[in-house]
Design a protein around this nucleic acid. Structure first.
Lengths: 224, 224
DNA sequence: CCGGCCAGTAACTAAACGGTTACTTGATGA
DNA sequence: TCATCAAGTAACCGTTTAGTTACTGGCCGG
């Protein structure tokens, strides 16, 4: 909070509390991006409405086009921001700090909890895949934003193999995809699943049970 | 083929080969449904275009509204048809015929291969979940079309537990969701995954490897 | 203190969209 | 054989949509 540009000089800017809605490019830009994230994740690319985004952001279409060019570029920014979000969070994670088994469990827990906390990210992934990664593929920003997890995961698995606790055939990408699969499907398909099986999957007890299940399955699939 | 209504009576209908495109309500209806399945699975509910469906079906909008009411009802028919498709295929499956382990493996293989063969079903599931199962929930037809697999799966698991090959905590729904997760995620997210990991997931060798992986993971998670 | 630039507004436009109307064509049974 | 009704066509309609234009107002450097 309280960012006031490059170095506070002469006078402190007076900004009366009763008129917060003065000019503020960064605030407006951020508001549009947040509103767009909601709109796109709730309605997909085809269902999202530019007018709705402007209204949700408390501004108007002109600003949206001013800052982001057009609907597609705005969507791309939203998608990029979402990827940056999970990659940033991943950086806090150090799965090599403890035992290999604990490391894998930690990765599974992190992924599951991140998905659970950010359903809009899963929704955007779904939209992007519906369109065959049309925008992701043309994103220069995301091309240089790889997940470093595969590297770390490879090391953890190798340590586990040498210690004799993991099977030799355990593959890093497979482990990562397994964890992601179990988390993604449960959350993104909760509505059809709950309807068909007549069981509320988002109840606390069920969520906790699935969390334990993911860790169990992942470890069971690679343990000797 | 060769369905000619209720009982062939007096004369065989002459239908000259050089004028196939005569009146044929069933053909037109089916063509619209097929075209709609493609359009909805490729573009989602919001992105699908009624004009595009009519054109793909080789007919016009009037017929579409004639047979299905409006866009939403047409979408519901498409969704229902897709569910009927997988449920019908499931009926061929008898996972209790052999050993418990083979039964589970068979279920995993069936699910994976069905998903692989019918990506449009996965896409429709994605669209439906984006909209929080809005249409699925209001479908009377699908309410009485449960998967019988959970029942059969319960029996197979019980037999395995009694034989001492499966752990006592193995839960039918969890097993089913595990299998579905691993298949669904790999296929529906292939585009973003391939882009990010720089590896073509749909290459034959990778598909085969993942098929084996699903069976391995599923069994490893429930074996004693 | 003021000129130019940028944040912000609102009304507008052309095209696309879902859905309808007015009409034609062809099969069928009394 | 012809009245009837369903199948099928095409042009049309009102609304919504992404994107634009013409304008207002605040702020900062010279």
């Amino acid at each position: 909070m309280g960012m006031d540009g490059s170095g506070e000089k002469k006078i402190v800017k007076r900004r009366p509390a009763d008129r917060v809605l003065q000019r503020d490019p960064e605030r407006t830009r951020a508001a549009i991006l947040e509103a767009a994230t909601k709109e796109f994740s709730e309605n997909g690319m085809g269902g999202a409405r530019v007018d709705a985004i402007a209204e949700r952001a408390g501004t108007n279409k002109r600003m949206l086009y001013h800052y982001f060019g057009d609907k597609e570029q705005l969507y791309l920014h939203v998608l990029e921001e979402a990827y940056v979000g999970i990659r940033t969070a991943e950086r806090e994670l150090h799965i090599g700090d403890r035992s290999p088994e604990e490391g894998i469990a930690e990765l599974a827990l992190f992924t599951w909890r991140y998905f659970l906390k950010h359903p809009e990210f899963l929704s955007l992934l779904g939209t992007e895949n519906l369109h065959r990664a049309r925008w992701l593929r043309q994103s220069v920003r995301l091309k240089e934003l790889h997940s470093h997890l595969i590297v770390e995961l490879t090391q953890v698995l190798d340590r586990g193999k040498q210690a004799g606790v993991f099977i030799d055939t355990a593959d890093p990408l497979n482990v990562y995809l397994t964890i992601a699969s179990l988390g993604y499907f449960y959350i993104s398909n909760q509505y059809t699943l709950s309807t068909i099986f007549g069981r509320e999957l988002t109840e606390k007890t069920n969520l906790d049970a699935w969390e334990r299940h993911i860790v169990h399955v992942t470890l069971a699939s690679i343990k000797t």
